[in-house]
């Protein structure tokens, strides 16, 4: 008997039914891509902010384990594969060397070398490329002179690179300003200490199951700040990291695809398969499950391991941003 593959996944059928049922109320939000992405972004930022208030330590401990690898895959997909940067010749592949070295503990000045081939392969005039190289030189000088402060600033600001990347993907409507406005308001609220009474009331200052503490995150994210400011910086990091994941996994995919309407899951899978191929997807899935498995054994060490694995991606984002800035065009 010959069996035929179903034309639609059951989950797509389910989603279609949910869309149809909600159309009278939410149809206006979903029909237009610009409006849909703006609301989706506002919702993502709101959820990130709420989780930061309710369970910041869980957010910091579980976020990287659950969403870390998928967001690295999104990085590679939207920064390299879809803009077809990997097809621009051997110079681009050379940029992988400093990124790889990052995973082995290379100093920031070495990791920043990934920007050099990225700027040089940009389709731009010589003056624009020289400007790009000048920016790389300035960043390298800062990294050599003040490595630890440089790394700390980069750690915090890299969360915002994603937001900037998403912003330039398409022309934005006035409604889209809601997303950066909410991010700014949330960060300001956290940095000004608005979250502290909530955390005290809800007991959010500790979470024994996470095998970590605010003290550890202060040592990692804000070692030079006073204790009060340091805790606020850690909270803003938890919030912005969560926003960073939402941008790469929800907003960028929505805006980067050609088709403006929501795409069935089956089609999304096919597009993913076309971008990476099944063997690589299996590797990504295996890596995700492996990190989750390690997290079940030792949450703190699994998180440390993931951070080491992911150290390169901030520089990948920076290098791709440098390339498109020098070219002066939208990446898609």
């Amino acid at each position: 008997m010959i069996s035929q593959a179903p034309t639609q996944w059951w989950v797509d059928g389910l989603r279609s039914r949910v869309y149809r049922a909600l159309r009278p109320w939410l149809g206006a939000f979903y029909a237009d891509r610009a409006r849909r992405v703006a609301w989706m972004g506002a919702l993502s930022v709101t959820v990130s902010f709420t989780l930061t208030l309710l369970a910041p330590l869980w957010l910091l401990a579980l976020g990287p384990l659950l969403l870390g690898v998928p967001h690295l895959v999104a990085d590679a997909r939207y920064l390299v594969v879809q803009p077809k940067l990997h097809q621009r010749g051997p110079l681009v592949w050379l940029a992988a060397l400093p990124l790889l070295a990052t995973g082995f503990g290379a100093p920031a000045a070495v990791s920043l070398l990934a920007l050099v081939p990225a700027v040089l392969v940009a389709r731009a005039s010589v003056p624009r490329k020289l400007l790009g190289l000048l920016a790389w030189g300035a960043l390298t000088a800062a990294a050599l002179a003040f490595e630890t402060p440089f790394l700390l600033v980069f750690l915090h600001l890299h969360n915002l690179i994603a937001l900037g990347w998403w912003w330039v993907l398409r022309p934005r409507t006035r409604l889209a300003w809601l997303v950066p406005a909410l991010v700014l308001a949330g960060t300001a609220f956290l940095l000004l200490g608005g979250a502290e009474p909530v955390l005290t009331a809800l007991g959010g200052w500790r979470a024994t199951g996470t095998m970590t503490s605010f003290g550890e995150f202060v040592a990692l994210d804000a070692p030079f700040a006073t204790p009060t400011v340091a805790a606020r910086v850690v909270l803003s990091f938890a919030f912005l990291q969560s926003v960073h994941y939402a941008v790469w996994l929800r907003l960028v995919p929505e805006d980067a695809r050609q088709r403006p309407a929501p795409r069935p899951f089956r089609e999304s899978w096919r597009a993913l398969e076309a971008d990476f191929g099944v063997p690589l997807l299996v590797v990504f899935l295996g890596l995700s499950l492996f990190i989750l498995g390690c997290g079940a054994v030792n949450l703190a060490e699994a998180r440390g391991g993931y951070l080491q694995l992911a150290a390169f991606h901030g520089y990948l984002e920076l290098a791709a941003a440098a390339l498109f800035l020098v070219e002066g065009k939208r990446p898609c």
Binding site: F104, A219, L220, G293, N298, A302, G305, L307, Q308, L309
Partner: peptide
């Protein structure tokens, strides 16, 4: 699984160095 995790996480020492004192 535990041994495998611990072995692979040995590679993560530089990251742990950021969390713990050197």
């Amino acid at each position: 699984m535990k041994t495998l995790c611990l072995l692979s996480l040995l590679l993560a020492m530089p990251a742990l160095a950021d969390i713990l004192p050197d």
